[in-house]
């Protein structure tokens, strides 16, 4: 069926008759979304920052206490420990996930039988929720470690590397998809030119392919960085921070990452709500700074095609 009377091309949209009211009334059109954004994001965010300077049980009964919460937050050995755990975890998992995801993507973009099947299979772990994965992997690790007469939460090292394996297993498939898209966009004539010029496989990889997939690398490192900093449910379900020890007159959960630390601080009792809030603000600044720095660093290496 053809519509005859309606001209459906750019000239209609661009006509002055249509454009002028849009230009005049655009605040009205963005208003619903903008209001939602304020209610759902800006306002809670501002309130969160305000609450980090307060003691409170519910947001309604907040009383201002100044920077006291921040002092408590940064002097908490559990928080420091969680920070270093997170930093180590981020470094290890960024390298591991990206190298493996890139390698698999590279392998699966070569002409091989069943590449599509492999892509699907590698992507599948990403479809399972973090809590479920945490519990399943804790069983797997415990079953393995049982052979060596020990258990997952016996040693902080087991918990740490267990978490690395879990997260790598979960995220490699996702990053792989991004890398595959990047690899497929590498212009064929460039590869051909490299071949004609006599470049070997490694030279082609490092001089042609990697510079061309730099946008994918930027995205993937950004995602793995923020993912590993924000990691929460896998951490909670796998070890829950155990083993816990008393040291320096304080309790330290050996395998706790930042997000879980904030969560458990909040749940101590109402005296700690403000401190957890302060930790969350510190955490936000940390993630924001790291992500911006990382973006700037990798962006500069991207090439225009």
């Amino acid at each position: 069926m053809k519509k005859k009377s309606v001209k459906n091309d750019n000239s209609t949209v661009n006509s002055l008759l249509v454009r002028r009211p849009i230009q005049r009334w655009f605040p009205l059109f963005i208003l619903p979304t903008f209001l939602c954004f304020i209610i759902g994001f800006i306002w809670p965010f501002a309130q969160g920052i305000y609450l980090s300077f307060c003691t409170f049980n519910t947001p309604k009964d907040a009383t201002w206490v100044g920077v006291q919460n921040y002092v408590k937050a940064v002097t908490d050995p559990g928080f420091t420990n969680a920070f270093w755990n997170t930093a180590k975890f981020a470094v290890v998992s960024i390298i591991l996930i990206n190298v493996l995801a890139f390698s698999i993507a590279y392998a699966l973009t070569q002409k091989m039988r069943g590449a599509n099947l492999f892509r699907t299979v590698f992507f599948m772990p990403n479809l399972i929720g973090g809590v479920v994965l945490g519990y399943i992997w804790s069983m797997i690790f415990d079953a393995i470690l049982k052979q060596y007469n020990t258990y997952l939460t016996a040693n902080a090292k087991y918990g740490f590397w267990g978490l690395v394996i879990l997260v790598a297993w979960q995220q490699i498939g996702y990053m792989m998809i991004i890398y595959i898209a990047g690899l497929q966009a590498v212009p064929g004539d460039m590869l051909e030119a490299a071949k004609i010029d006599g470049a070997n496989g490694w030279q082609t990889l490092f001089r042609v392919i990697i510079p061309n997939v730099m946008p994918s690398i930027t995205i993937c490192t950004f995602l793995t960085l923020t993912n590993s900093f924000k990691l929460f449910d896998q951490n909670m379900a796998l070890t829950g921070g155990a083993p816990e020890i008393m040291a320096q007159g304080a309790k330290i959960k050996m395998t706790e990452l930042l997000a879980l630390n904030i969560y458990s601080t909040y749940n101590i009792n109402k005296n700690w709500h403000g401190v957890a809030q302060a930790k969350a603000v510190v955490f936000f600044i940390l993630v924001a700074v790291l992500a911006i720095a990382q973006q700037a660093a990798t962006r500069s290496k991207e090439v225009q095609q």
Binding site: N149, T150, Y151, T153, A154, A242, P243, I245, K251
Partner: peptide
Amino acid sequence: RSTVVSALATYSA
């Protein structure tokens, strides 16, 4: 309790 359990697990092993 969770601290005690952690320590108890280490001791039991």
